[in-house]
Design a protein around this nucleic acid. Structure first.
Length: 224
DNA sequence: GCGACAG
DNA sequence: ATCTTGTCGC
């Protein structure tokens, strides 16, 4: 990696201007080839807020693969030092996520993150940023669109349409439940578009979101 | 200038 | 994301 990239990876900004520079420096390091190796554990990642929004509370819900047995749930907290600005979500939530990850004996072999991967204005959504930071395969699963356009998606479970930004494919709009609003799937790091969609489909139960993300979502937003 | 805009 | 109770429906 270049010196600028090395400096940007584990560096932290305190303003959007600097954050944008970090995103631009890191985006080129994202790998879109499937490089998951042997997956024996995977985790869902989500963040909630408490104390009137002054504290971020992240949850990492670890599961065994391929049986999807729940293994462990950890919670990490961190002061919120960055405002919510579309396109800069990772700078708000990652400190808490990293605090949660630090509680695990071993990092998950694959991360499913609530939010976008490369389906981002500068191709560095939270799943990409986190995947790069931890050097782990990561997938972004957004409940709504940040950027890009797409054709109408079929109404049946499994129907999908590529998410495009001009000529470039940045993700997939995937119907995870028949007649229910689709999700926005995009590679975070070390996974392909098709690989990301396959992982999401493989971790679904009967709901709209993958089970690992649902579990993280519950723990992260649960009061107390 | 106007509209869009992850969580 | 969060502030918030009950309620309609499978």
């Amino acid at each position: 990696m270049t010196a600028m990239e090395a400096a940007a990876l584990h560096d932290w900004p305190d303003d959007a201007r600097t954050a944008r520079g970090i995103q631009q420096a890191l985006a080129g390091r994202v790998r879109l080839e499937d490089d998951t190796g042997a997956v024996s554990t995977l985790a869902g990642v989500d963040t909630g807020f408490e104390a009137g929004g002054r504290t971020a509370r992240a949850c990492v819900a670890l599961f065994r693969w391929p049986d999807l047995t729940p293994l462990e749930t950890v919670i990490g907290r961190a002061p919120v030092t960055f405002p919510y600005i579309p396109g800069f979500l990772s700078f708000r939530e990652m400190p808490a996520i990293l605090a949660a990850m630090a509680q695990l004996e071993h990092l998950p072999d694959l991360l499913l993150c609530d939010g976008q991967g490369i389906a981002h204005p500068r191709r560095l959504g939270i799943a990409s940023h986190l995947g790069l930071w931890l050097d782990r395969p990561a997938i972004g699963v957004g409940k709504s669109r940040l950027c890009g356009s797409h054709a109408a998606v079929g109404e049946q479970r499994g129907d999908q349409e590529p998410l495009l930004d001009g000529d470039a494919r940045i993700g997939t709009v995937l119907r995870t439940r028949s007649r229910v609003k689709p999700v926005f799937v995009s590679p975070g790091h070390r996974v392909s578009h098709d690989g990301a969609v396959a992982w999401v489909m493989a971790t679904l139960s009967r709901y709209r979101l993958p089970e690992p993300i649902r579990a993280a979502d519950r723990a992260a937003s649960r009061r107390g």
